[in-house]
Design a protein around this nucleic acid. Structure first.
Length: 217
DNA sequence: CTACCGATTGACT
DNA sequence: GTCAATCGGTAGA
């Protein structure tokens, strides 16, 4: 192949591109964390190598007053991670797909940010193999596709995202997004509380799921 | 055990 | 735009 997008962890050693965000980042109101996750880097490291990209679309799920949140009807085995400490993963299945969340706010305050789409940057070949397509736009556009591309499954439920191993989120100051670069809309697919403006997207990104956002929406 | 549901996706009109 | 396949999780008998 004429182009190699395979990246290794050593390329980024000691760089803020790859250094995991601290727990204090997640220990804040979920809407704040959701907004600030836009532009951050999501990394997944397996035996295959390093995969990941820039987060371009997320949704916040609130600990109170949000009937669409899985925690709204109490703790179960599935949603237990949401009730745990911030900075861990909450991975659940929907329609036979996995979806990845970052748990926010203090323990026993069940809130989380659903990671809905990334712009693929690392290990594009691995992601293409897992997805069964090499269309860049289809690799990780949508929460189920994203988890398939990154090989995120139930085993990673509860994983500590601050360790910088296997699955983590990093700051990338080169990708810092100003407020005006973020579009806020209602959440996609929820059957209740569908009016709340809790979906955050990188304005103009072609890697955002759902209907294309028109300029200024 | 059965019955039902859904924070999805891909195929189709 | 519409529609349903599909399966883990949940509740209830």
């Amino acid at each position: 192949m004429s182009r190699s997008s395979v990246s290794t962890r050593t390329e980024y050693r000691n760089s803020d591109v790859i250094r995991p965000l601290p727990r204090s980042f997640y220990d804040r109101p979920v809407e704040v964390v959701a907004r600030e996750l836009i532009g951050k880097r999501l990394f997944r490291e397996t035996a295959d190598g390093l995969t990941g990209g820039r987060i371009v679309e997320v949704e916040a799920y609130l600990s109170a007053g949000d009937s669409a949140c899985h925690a709204a009807r109490g703790e179960t085995r599935r949603n237990a991670s949401m009730f745990g400490p911030p900075g861990r993963a909450y991975v659940y299945a929907i329609h036979s797909r996995w979806c990845l969340n970052a748990v926010t706010e203090p323990e026993r305050t069940p809130s989380a940010v659903l990671i809905r789409a990334i712009e693929p940057l690392e290990g594009v070949e691995f992601m293409a193999t897992r997805r069964g397509t090499d269309k860049l736009l289809d690799l990780a556009r949508g929460p189920g596709r994203l988890c398939e591309a990154l090989d995120v499954r139930r085993e990673l439920d509860g994983w500590d995202l601050t360790l910088g191993e296997q699955l983590w989120i990093a700051r990338d100051t080169r990708c810092r997004v100003p407020d005006e670069g973020i579009v806020v809309t209602p959440r996609i697919g929820v059957t209740s509380a569908h009016e709340l403006p809790l979906r955050f997207c990188l304005s103009g990104s072609r890697f955002v799921s759902g209907r294309r956002l028109s300029r200024g929406d």
